[in-house]
């Protein structure tokens, strides 16, 4: 009788291990606060293996709290503009399948320094480094991990401010908007380039969300919570397949025009 119990316990353990081993994995950048933080929490709660990156993990208290709550959430140090840190992380995870690379890390940049008449070109350059080149570098560094996975998704976080159609009446924010337009383009080209290998590449947009970034922009209109945005985004992400149109989809399913 005891042997049978032990036997069944072993089978159960093996099955549980099997399930854990085949949990989907997501790598999310910029998870110390805002949308990235909420993404880590919700994917963690869903049982995904979450690789949550941030520039200074030791200062990311909220993120650390999530990692304490969910053993499937692991925090890694990463500055998306730092080639060496990208290489170190890629090295660490070499051979491990990663189902989704979610390039969420992004910055607004100082508002005055990207207003016409007071443009700061160093700031403009830094913003594109983070928002545009960072995601491309990460896609390059983790391409094999994605290809080895089941879902094979690379998703770049864009913005309504990256739309030339939608912003027909808004001025300013040159650095941010140029970086998102360039990110949109890079993603379009990447999608065409990687489609033959079965990789799913597309753009998602969170809507107007109550984050520090939105506050810094001076925006005073209505905004949703990170919880609402991310709940929507996770559903959207689930629905993005290889034959997706490669157009930016908002958290609520709305397709953003270029």
């Amino acid at each position: 009788m005891r042997t049978r119990i032990v036997f069944f316990l072993c089978v159960a353990a093996i099955m549980a291990l099997g399930t854990m081993a085949s949990a989907a994995t997501i790598l999310i950048t910029g998870t110390n606060r805002g949308i990235g933080l909420e993404l880590s929490k919700q994917y963690g709660a869903l049982g995904w293996d979450v690789i949550a990156t941030a520039r200074t993990p030791d200062r990311a208290d909220d993120l650390q709290a999530i990692a304490r709550n969910y053993s499937n959430v692991v925090i890694e140090r990463l500055d998306v503009t730092d080639d060496e840190e990208i290489a170190v992380l890629a090295d660490k995870y070499r051979g491990k399948p990663i189902d989704i690379l979610l390039n969420n890390a992004g910055m607004l940049g100082d508002v005055t320094e990207q207003s016409f008449g007071t443009l700061n070109f160093d700031t403009i350059k830094h913003v594109i480094d983070v928002n545009t080149y960072g995601p491309i570098k990460l896609a390059q560094a983790f391409r094999d991990n994605i290809a080895a996975s089941e879902q094979k998704k690379i998703l770049n976080m864009t913005s309504g401010l990256g739309s030339m159609t939608l912003t027909s009446r808004r001025g300013g924010f040159y650095a941010y908007r140029m970086s998102k337009a360039a990110l949109n383009m890079a993603t379009r080209i990447l999608r065409a380039d990687l489609q033959g290998e079965g990789l799913v590449v597309s753009l998602i947009s969170p809507g107007m969300v109550q984050t520090q970034l939105l506050a810094d922009s001076g925006y005073r209109g209505p905004a949703i919570t990170t919880e609402e945005s991310v709940t929507g985004l996770i559903k959207i992400i689930e629905g993005i397949t290889l034959d997706n149109a490669g157009t930016p989809v908002n958290y609520d399913g709305q397709v953003l025009p270029w």
Binding site: F116, I128, T132, I136, G162, M164, T167, S168, R169, R170, G171, G172, F173, Y174, R177, M178, S179, A181, A182, N184, M185, A186, I189, A192, D193
Partner: peptide, 21 residues
Amino acid sequence: SLYAYRMSKVAVNMAMRVLAV
């Protein structure tokens, strides 16, 4: 593909669009 060229050109499109406003 021309990543660099296309990205620079779409960004200047955006810049000029914003400038028009």
